[in-house]
Amino acid sequence: MSNGARHALGVVAGLLLPPLALAGFLYGIGEILFQSRSTLQLPWHAVGVLAAAAIVLAFLVGSRLSPVASLIGGLAYTGLGLLPLLEYAGGPVLRQDWLPARVNDGYLALGHSGMLLFVGVLLLTVSLFPSRWRAAVPEPLSVSPAYGQGSSPYLPEDATRPMFRE
């Protein structure tokens, strides 16, 4: 894959995967909070959604696709993680009803605990490594000029003969 195609796919992945993972995190945490308060049970479907969101986030962090994906996601997560800090400093920044109730509970839990900021800085840091910006080019195989010609100093003349033992 060419370097341009890899970065183009990284932009597409960076625009699609971080919001998908964020929606999974916010819904999963909000559903767990709601169900644990109301029925004192752990909703396993919400745990599955959290696991799927974590897999998507792990793909963004560890993928060889392009660092643009983690860069775009890191900027978004860092921005959302900084909003609660701005609320501490000066007052409300967002309206309280901008998300559905359970998803808003998840945002408040993740945002005010600092996890969104942590994930954002993680994604930004991962995208800074220079090795992720370079294309993965396989090294050419080097064959010695005497390959197949004459005898090798490492092999006996007749390789089928048993080894000499003292």
Rank of each mutant, 00 (worst) to 15 (best):
W98E: 06
W98T: 11
W98D: 08
W98L: 15
L99A: 09
L99M: 11
L99G: 03
L99K: 05
L99P: 01
L99V: 01
L99D: 03
L99Q: 07
L99E: 07
A101S: 15
R102A: 09
N104D: 13
N104M: 15
N104L: 13
N104E: 15
N104I: 04
D105Q: 11
D105G: 12
G106L: 03
G106N: 09
G106Y: 07
Y107Q: 01
Y107K: 03
Y107T: 04
Y107A: 10
Y107W: 10
Y107R: 09
L108H: 13
A109F: 15
A109S: 15
A109E: 11
A109L: 11
A109G: 11
A109N: 10
L110G: 00
L110P: 05
L110V: 01
L110S: 08
G111T: 02
G111D: 03
G111M: 05
H112F: 15
H112Q: 13
H112S: 09
H112G: 08
H112M: 08
S113W: 09
S113M: 07
S113R: 05
G114N: 08
G114T: 04
M115V: 14
M115S: 12
L117E: 04
L117D: 04
L117M: 05
L117P: 06
L117Y: 01
V119E: 03
V119C: 06
V119H: 01
V119S: 02
G120A: 04
G120V: 05
G120R: 00
G120H: 03
G120D: 02
V121P: 08
V121M: 02
V121T: 09
V121W: 03
L122C: 06
L122N: 00
L123T: 04
L124S: 04
T125W: 04
T125R: 02
V126N: 05
V126L: 01
V126G: 01
S127T: 10
S127D: 05
L128K: 05
L128F: 09
L128Y: 02
L128P: 00
F129W: 13
S131V: 14
S131N: 10
R132F: 06
R132K: 15
W133Y: 04
W133E: 01
W133K: 05
W133D: 00
W133A: 09
W133S: 07
W133N: 02
W133H: 13
R134V: 11
R134P: 08
A135E: 11
A135M: 10
A135C: 10
A135T: 14
A136W: 14
A136Q: 14
V137L: 12
V137P: 06
P138M: 09
P138L: 13
E139F: 11
E139P: 02
E139S: 10
